[in-house]
Computed example of a mutant assay.
Amino acid sequence: MKLTRRFLLAAAPTTFFLPKAFAAGGMLAPRLMGNPDAKVKVHEWFSLTCYHCARFQKETFPRVKAELIDTGRIAYYFHEFPLDQVALLGSMLALSLPNDRYIPFCEALLSSLDRWAFARDVDPVQQLRQMAALAGISGTEFDRINADNKLRQMIVDTQDRDQKRYHIEGTPYFRFNTIEYKAELRSYDDFLKEVKKAEA
């Protein structure tokens, strides 16, 4: 999808680090999973309403996590790149969660796009409210986050900066160290090839 991933509190534990900028208070710093000292650093820009991102999360990312992230071979950074207002609210909610709930929340949204974002006669905002509650965000907190136009604008500004810097044309968009990959990564083998190129 041109310019068009990540179940909640019960998710399995994983190695998850805070980048220094986030630890210092930078809420919008990309979340990091894996070994921060790994030779290969993979960056993914994703939108929570992108079917291609959802497919990658469902079909490829589990093996990437098991064989490359959990083994310490790569560091994996997640960047918000919302492509519509619903995805933007999802990003605002995700970034407001504690670090250990960020990826499970994104996974839950991406794995159920057809039910909460695109189903007929469904209000995506109300669906987000229900899923956020499962992640520990109360109704009052949901309303506060939804009304936080400063956070909303900060995400959009970060997205605009990244788009101009890397010429991002669609999601998911990847960088393997300094090597960009714009096509859709359809398999683990394709992903591994890019890791090996970055290792060379």
Rank of each mutant, 00 (worst) to 15 (best):
R6Q: 15
L8H: 08
L9A: 12
A12E: 10
A12G: 08
P13R: 12
L18R: 08
P19S: 05
G25M: 10
G26C: 07
M33N: 05
P36N: 03
D37T: 10
E44G: 05
S47F: 07
C53H: 11
A54M: 02
R55C: 04
F56I: 01
F56A: 01
Q57K: 07
T60V: 15
V64H: 02
K65R: 10
E67H: 09
L68Q: 12
G72H: 10
R73Q: 11
R73M: 08
A75M: 06
H79V: 00
H79D: 05
H79T: 01
F81I: 04
L83T: 13
A87S: 10
L89F: 06
G90I: 05
L93D: 04
L97K: 02
P98L: 04
N99G: 10
I103W: 11
P104G: 02
P104N: 07
S112L: 00
S112A: 11
R115C: 01
W116H: 01
W116R: 05
W116C: 02
A117F: 12
A117S: 14
F118L: 02
R120N: 07
R120M: 08
V122H: 08
P124I: 01
V125E: 12
Q126S: 10
R129S: 05
Q130K: 12
Q130R: 12
Q130W: 09
S138D: 04
F142T: 06
D143I: 03
A147S: 14
D148S: 07
R152T: 00
Q153R: 13
M154F: 06
D157N: 13
D157T: 08
D160N: 13
R161M: 11
R161H: 15
R161Q: 07
K164D: 09
R165N: 10
Y166Q: 06
Y166D: 14
H167K: 09
F174C: 03
F176D: 03
F176A: 09
K182P: 01
A183K: 11
L185Q: 02
L185S: 01
R186L: 05
Y188N: 02
F191G: 04
L192T: 01
K193C: 01
A200F: 12
A200C: 00
